[in-house]
Design a protein around this nucleic acid. Structure first.
Length: 747
RNA sequence: GCGCGGUUAGCUCAGUUGGUAGAGCAACCCGUUUACACCGGGAAGGUCACAGGUUCGAGUCCUGUAUCGCGCACCA
């Protein structure tokens, strides 16, 4: 029927194949479900399957974590597409406010300018330029990964449509009183000059000195003497017998850093009697816990450190000095005054640092915007049913408590519940320039506050809040802002709720929880049905892949260049189960490169042997081949079931093993004998052909490039493998099924 | 401190309601028989961390211990 393509004379070359194949897919338009329906591959009334891609940050390029995400999601999507679902996988990128801004700040600094010299407008222009470049690079790389994303629907968290969604969401929450502005203690990053959320803090263990000072009749411990100027409350446990002679709210005079002060004794259970002397002083302005205690007893709060990390006039002779320098000076002074009792040199302190800038977090009391997670949602018109009287926290808990949403692996449910229990109000304002500007204006004269999607009409009398929103605010809307919300679009009706969200378990809190919050609150529905959490990708020696590893990190594009994307995909899927970390090493990838070539060569043999086969009227199998045929059907049944349970690792392994060690090693070898001896050779040829046909389909979600390339060279194929039907018994069968297999299939 | 996970062949890891241990890679022996040496055949390799318990039967369920890792909270 055809000459063997001369490509088969050489080993399979992913490098010469993959880009072409992706282009064929893209040009076909079939990543877009509308096109697939139009061309008759997908039924108009078919069930939908949708995944919104977790948008990569526009901070540079993709890493192995992105690669893993793309592979898992692409497998899901290709599988569902082949099963006839109206399948949408929607791509996008995230402006990643702080991350992107701090990257550009560094670039600008290298050029010798500072962002303050440039000004807001000019600096933002630079950021946008950078973001655009990153975006283009990310899209290019994503295509290299073979991702079957519908690029016609691409979104960006900071584009016009998403801005409209963000402002709409903000206004709704503001009107419902769930967003408020107020003075609260926040995590201040002196380096980035912005607040950050609790989840953006990274704790680092550092050895530091732990000082014990005399404080009147007490001894108090601290690792941070520089905050102690304003400490006029001394706290101990009410049941601590050592201090039973002191009373709650009793006032005493103590000699302190800059002379005598009047201190007040506070008795509270927050004290750990076992720690140090069981006595401490508090600094409400610069500590979350101290702040809470001060609120409880209505204590005075005083700012000691300014937002640049320098001491304020309260420190008198130390005013204006940076805290890390002032520390030793203060200790020296206390020592001179005879108030230093001891220094523990081996104290290990956990320092809160900002994830993006590395700056040491200095808690501060500041006026910021917050989302109230505990306030009951008030009754109003158009409120989704069942929301009134519930808090956002409850909305986040319900879908998991009621098992409307499943998490894979299940154990992360506990982690999720634990996080919500400890959840505080979400500080959403950031003092950075890049991002969604808060849609609130202040009247210059009347101080009136105006919150709306559009600015007030008499804009000259108003000033917009200078702050921007936490980047996760817009990310929280992602499953539906990408589909056109707040407009009630066809896409929104068709594809939301989405089926699966697939992402690394490290952003369960950052993102997953917030998507549930936003979708439940704004739409009254869950954003997805299944949460599939993959693990972290690690190097062969177990280190987390990250930029700091430099050359030790595996760059997915380099790997693809060397071994092909199919090889990388197999290496990432086999042996990788949800939630568990993946150690990626080049050896495995090389091995799976051989697999692609094995399929390639097996195809050559099949094509050579079957070129006289009548494909429209396949010969019947003999008993032996019939049995083999049914074994393959059983395999298909098994893996179909496992695919539906997201057990991709086991499916990939089974297919690999079956192809290599049954089809190639046993069936092809057996066919050689039959064909050579011309004994039931027709049966053998039919078996070869149907096996190859079925296996290519089953392997396609895992290794789409090599299978599609081979598919294009098979006779009688009128459509791309991309939109072929996933093998089923009836479809793949050439011979008559035995009752045994049929029963299995029905079950 | 609270919680979660890992501990299975030399290495990396699978192992789905409990039913006589699996894969890939590495190492060993044999073999170039025309799809493929990016190959084939063969053999070897594990008291499933440890100790108890439930069971006719436990890698799998329960309790405890060790060890590695992760998350959360606290850290004056």
């Amino acid at each position: 029927y055809m000459e063997i393509n001369e490509k088969f004379l050489k080993p399979y070359s992913p490098k010469d194949t993959e880009d072409n194949i992706y282009k064929i897919w893209e040009d076909s338009g079939l990543f877009n479900p509308d096109v697939s329906i139009q061309k008759g591959y997908t039924d108009h009334n078919a069930e939908t399957f949708s995944i919104i891609l977790p948008p990569p940050n526009v901070t540079g390029s993709l890493h192995t974590g992105h690669a893993l995400m793309l592979v898992i999601e692409d497998i899901m999507v290709r599988y569902k597409r082949m099963n006839g679902y109206k399948t949408l996988w929607l791509p996008g990128t995230d402006h990643a406010a702080i991350a992107t801004q701090s990257k550009v700040e560094k670039i600008v600094e290298k050029e010798g300018t500072r962002k303050s010299d440039l000004g807001r407008e000019a600096f933002l222009k630079r950021v946008e330029e950078y973001a655009l470049n990153s975006h283009d690079e990310i899209v290019r790389q994503t295509k290299k990964m073979g991702a079957s994303l519908d690029w016609s629907r691409e979104a960006f968290t900071l584009d016009d449509k998403r801005t409209f969604a963000v402002r709409t969401a903000f206004k709704k929450m503001y009107d419902d009183g769930l967003i408020y502005r107020g003075y609260r203690i926040v995590n201040w990053d002196p380096k980035g000059q912005t607040t950050i959320s609790d989840d953006e803090i990274v704790y680092e263990e550092r050895k530091s000195k732990f000082y014990t000072f005399k404080y009147g009749p007490f001894e108090i411990g601290t690792a941070r003497p520089e905050t102690k100027f304003g400490d006029k409350y001394v706290v101990m446990h009410p049941l601590d017998t050592r201090y039973k002679d002191f009373e709650h709210m009793q006032k005493i005079t103590v000699e302190w850093i800059n002379g005598p002060i009047e201190a007040t004794i506070i008795k509270d259970e927050m004290i750990d009697m076992e720690f140090g002397t069981g006595v401490m002083t508090i600094t409400p302005w610069h500590s979350h816990e101290d702040f809470n205690l001060a609120q409880k007893y209505n204590l005075e709060k005083e700012q000691i450190i300014d937002k640049y990390g320098k001491l304020l006039p309260i420190a008198q002779e130390f005013a204006g000095i940076k805290i890390d320098i002032a520390r030793q000076n203060i200790v020296d002074k206390l020592k001179e005054k005879g108030l230093l009792v001891s220094v523990d040199e081996n104290y290990v302190n956990r320092i809160a640092t900002a994830e993006r800038t590395g700056g040491t977090i200095e808690p501060q009391i500041m006026e910021q915007w917050f989302i109230d997670v505990n306030k009951k949602i008030p009754e109003r018109e158009n409120l989704p049913t069942g929301q009134a009287g519930k808090s956002l926290k409850e909305l986040m808990l319900e879908p998991l408590k009621n098992e409307e949403i499943e998490i894979l692996p299940e154990r992360f449910e506990k982690v999720y519940f634990n996080w919500i229990e400890n959840l505080r109000d979400w500080c959403i304002s950031r003092q950075i320039w890049y991002g969604h500007r808060i849609p609130v204006w202040y009247n210059k004269n009347t101080k009136e506050i105006y919150c709306d999607i559009n600015p007030p009409k008499d804009i000259e009398n108003w000033e917009q809040d200078p702050d921007t929103l936490d980047t996760w605010f817009s990310s929280g809307l992602w499953t539906f802002s990408t589909l056109g919300w707040p407009n009630n679009t066809e896409d929104l009706k068709t594809y939301h709720p989405t089926n699966v969200i697939e992402t690394g378990h490290d952003i369960l809190f950052f993102w997953i929880a917030r998507m549930i919050l936003m979708s439940k609150y704004l739409l009254g529905v869950n954003p997805f049905k299944t949460i599939y959490l993959h693990g972290m990708v690690r190097t062969a020696d177990g280190k987390k892949m990250s930029k700091s590893l430099g050359e030790k990190a595996i760059d997915p594009l380099t790997i693809i260049e060397k071994y092909g994307n199919d090889a990388l995909r197999m290496a990432m899927i086999v042996g990788n189960t949800p939630g568990n970390d993946l150690k990626l090493n080049e050896n495995d990838i090389r091995g799976y490169g051989k697999f692609a070539n094995k399929i390639w060569n097996a195809t050559r043999f099949v094509l050579e042997q079957t070129n006289d086969l009548d494909l429209k009227n396949l010969p019947a199998f003999d008993a032996e081949d019939q049995k083999s045929h049914e074994e393959l059907q059983s395999l298909i049944l098994e893996i179909t079931k496992e695919m539906n349970e997201y057990r991709f690792s086991i499916v990939a392994e089974k297919l690999y093993h079956y192809f290599w060690h049954t089809f190639a090693d046993v069936l092809i070898e057996r066919s050689k004998v039959k064909i050579l001896e011309n004994k039931n050779s027709d049966s053998a040829k039919a078996l070869l052909y149907t096996h190859l046909d079925t296996l290519l389909k089953a392997l396609h979600p895992f290794i789409p490039f090599v299978t599609e390339e081979i598919w294009s060279m098979l006779p009688n194929k009128d459509r791309l493998l991309l939109v072929e039907e996933w093998p089923t018994y009836a479809k793949a069968s050439a011979g008559k099924p035995s009752n045994d297999v049929l029963n299995k299939y029905d079950a």
